[in-house]
Design a protein around this nucleic acid. Structure first.
Lengths: 192, 192
DNA sequence: GGGAGCATGTAACGGGTTACATGATTGG
DNA sequence: CCAATCATGTAACCCGTTACATGCTCCC
């Protein structure tokens, strides 16, 4: 009778952190933070620094990662994390067996549109315009990121996610533009 | 020197709850829960029942809503909430002065794509197909909701948010289809 | 009679945040 | 030399969730 390995029950952020390490790099918490901000943040997550560190400690305590302190830099130590074999097995289990959580979307600006019978619509329009520009910038950054990812075979799937993100944010910009036009037209018609 | 009213610092969910009441209905916590599930959930939020009740209590304690217990139904009491004048002022302040929080997107499936070098891609493709179908259904429900909202003038902006949601989820379905096709093609080519 | 929906509430927990604290290294 | 960046960590807090608990009313 074979001992079946159970998937550990960890929060999504832990899997994201482990996911970063599954690309085989040996990284510090600080590295992971930047990694996350530059790629994962487009479609998931912008975790705080402190949580990354505590998540890493947890992952180590259950044996999914190991760490060693780099001694070269004498005084302030860097702690370097790497995924373990068990970590790889668990990551695979997660990728295969995790049941789909619904997409979490919290779009505060749409909440403001929805509640626009309170308050000044011109400010809302201004906020939407800003959001459109920001979305466009994000889309461009994601596209750029996808180009970079295409150069490294190991980043193939990360690159796919980047492409998806580029599309997502460019469509978000267009959607926002559409909403903007709707509100602006109404405002103009009332003014006329 | 005029006393300027400061915007209260409340969590976003509190504003969402207050927003529901700003449509002038007198509602129970239970009503608000359903309201939220049917419309706000498309672009924001799917809060737990318990939080709605505690949020209502908080809103009452700071004077943004009032409640009275309906006596008609003898035994089990329904508590009916309504927005106050102060609540209206605060809602307006929120709508005007809240600085834009970034959109929160947590797309677990994209996290799985991003980490697809671990694990079986065929399961990922199946999960994506399911997500595409679910997104399509959501889009259709949102569109239906927008049609209903169009009948009532007070729901004008809520209707705009519904239209936006319909577009969002239909585009989400298309985006997912695109990702699906990419992964499927790669799989086929490898198999060939 | 029983199940679905209406209706409210408490308690425990934890995920994740902000703020605070510390200090080394690097480059202008 | 000073600022920015690298780098790690603790403590307090709270938002929001799940689970539990209760009991009504309406309809089949």
């Amino acid at each position: 009778m074979s001992e079946r390995i159970e998937r550990l029950d960890l929060p999504a952020t832990a899997w994201a952190v482990l996911g970063v390490l599954s690309f085989d790099d040996v990284l510090t918490g600080y590295d992971i933070k930047r990694w996350a901000e530059q790629s994962i943040a487009f479609f998931y997550w912008a975790p705080s620094q402190s949580q990354i560190y505590s998540e890493l400690r947890r992952l180590e305590s259950v044996g999914l990662v190991t760490s060693r302190i780099e001694q070269t830099h004498a005084a302030r130590s860097r702690r370097l994390y790497a995924i373990t074999d068990l970590g790889r097995i668990q990551m695979r289990l997660w990728a295969e067996t995790t049941e789909p959580e619904p997409v979490v979307l919290k779009h505060q600006l749409m909440l403001r549109v929805w509640a626009a019978h309170n308050g000044d619509r011109r400010r809302l329009i201004a906020a939407l315009a800003e959001h459109r520009d920001e979305a466009r910038r994000r889309g461009e950054r994601a596209a750029q990121h996808a180009v970079n990812a295409a150069k490294v075979p190991a980043w193939h799937f990360a690159g796919l996610a980047d492409e998806w993100s580029a599309r997502y944010w460019s469509e978000e910009a267009e959607r926002t533009e559409w909403m903007l036009a709707r509100l602006q037209t109404e405002l103009d018609e009332e003014g006329a």
